[in-house]
Nucleic acid binder design. Structure first.
Length: 305
DNA sequence: TGCCAGGTAAACA
DNA sequence: TGTTTACATGGC
C-alpha cells in the first residue's frame, strides 16, 4: 500500500529503511542519452501524462530519506487524480512496495551476491511502470548493445512521442500504443532497427489498442508463470523479453531473464572466470535465489556500469 | 578490424 | 526436443 502525504504542490513518499536514493540515481544515470528523464544536481526531472494533464515533476529526497515530488511549470495545482496517479507512478518506479529484508537475508550467504548487496545497499529495481514502454524497450534491446538500444529508443520517442518544453529543456512522453498501432513497417525502418522488430512493435501496439494485452491480464492472480506464458505466445517476445518485462514492469521478484548476456558478463566478472558461464552453471549459482531472481540479476547488472 | 551486443523466429535434424 | 542461422546495425 502506497504510503504518502499529499501537500498539493508537493508530495512525499515515505520510503522503507532499505532505500538509498543515490544508488538508484546511479542506475538511472548509466546512459548519457536516456530520453525519458533528466537528472541534474541529484534530482530527477520527468514529464508524466495522466489523462489530458501533462505534469513535469522534480524528484528529490528530504532529510529523512523520503522522496519528495514537486510539480513544476503548472500555474494551477495538479488535480487530485493526477497527484494520486503521479504518486503511484513514482512509488512503482522505485519499487517501494518491496520489502528487501528477505533478499538481503538470502544474499549475505550467497557467494555471488554478498558483495553486491554491500556495494549497492538500498538499490531497488528501477521499473518501467508503463507496459507499452517496457515491451518496446525489451524488444528494441534484443541482440544489440545497450548504447545502440538507447539511440533507437530516442529515435522512436522523438519521432512518435510527445514533447513537453519547460525552461529550455525538452521532456518526452513515450508514444502510446495508438501512436504506433496504425503505422506500417516503412514508417519505422528509418529508425534503423530490423524489419522484424518494427513488426513486433506494431503488433504489440495493436494488441494493446485492442485491449488484448494489459498489466491486469499479465498480473492475473499474481501467477508469474501465466503471465510469462501469455507474453511468450506473442511473436517477437521470447523468454528473455517476457522475463525482462515481468521484472521491470509487472514487478515479479522471481522473474529471471537467464539468457541475458549482461548477467552472464557480470557473473564472469564477479567470479573472475575466463569465459561466460553456461546456463547450467548459472542455474547452479542461482539455486538459492528462489523468489529473488529479479533482484539478484538487477544487483549483478550494477557491476557492469 | 572483427567480434560482440540486456534475443527471437524459422528452418531443419 | 534440440541445434543452427538470418537478422541489421553500431559500439568499441
Amino acid at each position: 500500500m502506497i504510503d504518502w502525504q499529499d501537500n498539493v504542490r508537493e508530495l512525499t513518499l515515505f520510503t522503507p529503511k532499505e532505500f538509498n536514493f543515490n544508488e538508484n540515481l546511479n542506475y538511472l544515470m548509466r546512459s548519457s542519452i536516456e530520453c525519458m528523464y533528466v537528472i541534474k544536481d541529484e534530482r530527477i526531472y520527468k514529464a508524466i501524462s495522466v489523462g489530458q494533464e501533462d505534469s513535469i515533476i522534480e524528484i528529490s529526497t528530504d532529510a529523512e530519506n523520503n522522496l519528495v515530488i514537486r510539480f513544476l511549470r503548472d500555474s494551477a495545482p495538479a488535480s487530485k487524480l493526477t497527484r494520486a496517479a503521479v504518486a503511484n507512478y513514482v512509488w512503482e518506479w522505485f519499487d517501494l512496495e518491496r520489502d528487501l529484508m528477505p533478499f538481503y537475508g538470502m544474499a549475505e550467504n550467497d557467494s555471488l551476491l554478498k558483495g553486491a548487496i554491500v556495494s549497492f545497499y538500498g538499490l531497488r529495481i528501477m521499473g518501467i511502470p508503463d507496459l507499452f514502454e517496457a515491451l518496446c524497450w525489451g524488444i528494441i534491446g534484443q541482440q544489440i548493445n545497450l548504447t545502440f538500444a538507447y539511440t533507437l529508443k530516442r529515435r522512436l520517442v522523438e519521432k512518435f512521442g510527445r514533447c513537453v518544453e519547460f525552461e529550455g529543456e525538452s521532456y518526452w512522453i513515450f508514444p502510446k500504443p495508438s501512436d504506433i498501432a496504425s503505422l506500417n513497417v516503412e514508417d519505422l525502418v528509418g529508425l534503423r532497427m530490423t524489419v522484424k522488430k518494427c513488426e513486433y512493435l506494431i503488433d504489440v501496439a495493436k494488441l494493446m489498442v485492442e485491449g488484448k494485452l494489459t498489466k491486469e491480464l499479465l498480473l492475473g492472480t499474481g501467477n508469474f508463470k501465466s503471465g510469462e506464458k501469455i507474453l511468450i505466445s506473442i511473436r517477437g517476445i521470447g523468454p528473455w523479453t517476457a522475463n525482462y518485462v515481468l521484472m521491470r514492469c509487472l514487478r515479479f521478484p522471481n522473474a529471471f531473464p537467464i539468457d541475458d548476456v549482461g548477467l552472464h558478463n557480470a557473473i564472469k566478472q564477479v567470479l573472475g572466470m575466463d569465459t561466460k558461464p553456461t546456463k547450467k552453471e548459472i542455474l547452479q549459482l542461482a539455486e538459492n535465489w528462489t523468489g529473488w531472481e529479479a533482484y539478484a540479476t538487477f544487483y549483478l547488472w550494477r557491476f557492469l556500469y
